Structures are given as structure tokens and as C-alpha cells.
Amino acid sequence: MDALKKRRLSLMKRLVTLIFIIVILWASSLGTEVSISSLMDGLPGMGSLFLEMLPPDWSYFSYVTEPMLETIRMAVIGTTYGAIVAIPFALLSSRNVVKWPVIYFPFRFVMNLIRTIPELLLAALFVPVLGIGDNAGIMALSVFSFGVIAKLAYESIEAIDNGPLEAMTAVGANKIQWIFYGVVPQVIASFVSYTLYCFEINVRAAAILGYVGAGGIGLYLNNTLKLFQYQRVSTIIIYTLIVVVIIDMISNKCREKLI
């Protein structure tokens, strides 16, 4: 009887969960006024746009190579700056490194606050300050990278084995030695993996920051769309896809080696 009751209870929970999901989806579709009919009505227009993008303007590849390299450089520098700043924040946000809530709570609050701001909005904020160009994009990617890497890094630090730390404390190691020889060796592989993952995200993000004047290939994509040069648009999309796939493959191999 107990087994039958547990099975019925499990089925009821699944049914309630399913109903809850359906209600959420239905309420969301009503709030956003999404309908299958409107989507079907727009399909012919999407097909016409796709046909206008064919064939791609292959000669445009050489013209956008430098902006694409600029986009990659923005991602490299932005990720590096963000990762460097994330190191002390991750350490000061970890409860097993800093024992006092008055210290680690403010650092966590800053990280959470930064992670709520998308990179496109960050770029829009930096462009009026730094002007149109790469600097605004690099700063936006740096701040975004800092928020992501610091969050993941401090969670890794809090999950490390405390045995080596207790042993070092017992033999009189100071806090600096405690961090460098007890904490860093346990999280360095994860930290590098998070940095590579963030670099993958930043390459994609840097490709659209040009929409707000932050430089890179996104600026050319925005201009070609405004001028209805759809064949060049498809060239930029294909170029970006190739670069992102190559970077993803290299990054995945590196992360597999580390983990």
C-alpha cells in the first residue's frame, strides 16, 4: 500500500508540474501576443529575405577580414581584463577564504549587480563615455567577463577540498601561502576553463556590439542591413559562423585537456 501511495503521489506531482508549465506558457503567449497564425503569416516574408541574401557576395570577404580580426581582438582583450579583475573578487567572495560576511557579501552583491546588465547595454553606456570604436566594446566585454568568471570561480573555490588548507594552517602557513599553495592549485584548471568559455561567448557578443557603435564586425553588419545589401549581410553571417565554429572547436579541445 505504501508503494502504491508513493507512486500515486509521484504521478500527482508530475501532473501538477505539467499543468503549471502549461499555464506559464499560455500566460506568456498571451502577454507577448504570440500566435502560430502570425508566425505562419510571416514565413513568406522570411523566405523572400532569405532569397535576397543569395548568393553571398564572396568578394566582400576580403573587405570584412580586418573588422573580423578586430572583433576577435576585442574578445581577447576584454576576456583577459575581465579574468584578471575577477581573481581577487572571486577570492574575497568565497566563504572558505574570507570568513566574515561583512566582506564577502558586498563583493557578491557587486558581482550579481554587474551580471544583471547585458553586454549590449554595457556597450551603449560606454560609447558616450569613450566614443565610438573598440575601446567601448572592450570595456563592455571586460565588465561582462568579470561578472561571469568571478561568479563561476568563487563557486569553484567554495567547492574545493579543505584538507590541504587545514594542513597548511596547522603548520603555520600565512594567508598568502594558504591561497597560493592550497587554493590556486585546486581551481586553476577550472578558472582557465571558465575563461575560455567566456571568450567563446565574447566572440559572439563582440559581433553585435557594433550596433551601438562599439566597433568590430557588428558595425558593418548594421550598415549593410540599413542599406539593404542582403548579399553582403549573408557574407558577414557566414564569415562570423566560420570563425565562431573554429574558436569553439579549439576552446573545447583546450577545456577537455584541462578538465
Rank of each mutant, 00 (worst) to 15 (best):
A3Q: 03
A3F: 09
R8V: 11
L9V: 15
S10Y: 08
L11Q: 10
R14F: 10
L15M: 09
T17P: 01
L18W: 02
I21A: 13
S28L: 13
S29H: 09
L30M: 12
L30D: 10
T32N: 15
E33S: 08
S35I: 06
S35E: 03
S38A: 15
L39G: 11
L39T: 13
D41L: 05
G42H: 12
L43N: 00
P44Q: 11
P44W: 10
L49T: 01
L54C: 10
L54T: 09
P55S: 05
P56Q: 09
W58Y: 12
S62Y: 02
P67Q: 08
T71E: 05
A75L: 09
I77G: 10
I77C: 09
T79K: 08
T80F: 14
T80I: 15
A83R: 05
A83P: 07
A83M: 14
A83Y: 10
V85W: 08
A86K: 08
I87P: 07
I87D: 04
P88E: 11
F89R: 06
L91Y: 02
L91K: 03
L92E: 05
N96E: 07
W100G: 07
P101G: 08
P101H: 02
V102D: 04
I103K: 07
F105W: 13
F107L: 14
R108W: 06
F109E: 00
I114H: 01
R115T: 05
P118K: 02
P118I: 02
E119P: 14
L121C: 11
L122A: 05
L122G: 09
L122I: 02
L122C: 04
F126A: 09
V127T: 01
V129F: 12
L130S: 10
M139A: 15
A140P: 13
S142V: 00
S142F: 00
S142R: 01
F144T: 02
G147L: 00
I149L: 01
I149S: 00
I149M: 01
A150M: 00
A150Y: 01
K151R: 11
A153H: 08
Y154V: 01
S156N: 13
S156D: 14
I157K: 09
I157Y: 05
E158Y: 07
I160P: 07
G163Y: 05
P164G: 11
E166A: 12
G172Q: 09
K175F: 14
I176R: 08
I176Q: 05
Y181Q: 14
Q186G: 11
A189P: 10
V192R: 09
S193V: 06
Y194L: 07
T195V: 05
Y197S: 07
F199A: 00
E200C: 02
N202W: 06
A205N: 15
A206R: 10
A207Y: 02
G210I: 09
G213S: 08
Y220L: 13
Y220W: 05
T224C: 04
L225I: 12
K226R: 06
K226N: 06
L227F: 00
F228N: 12
Q229Y: 05
Q229H: 01
Y230N: 14
Q231H: 03
V233D: 00
S234K: 02
S234F: 04
I237R: 04
I238G: 04
Y239V: 10
I242V: 14
I247C: 14
M249H: 13
I259Y: 00
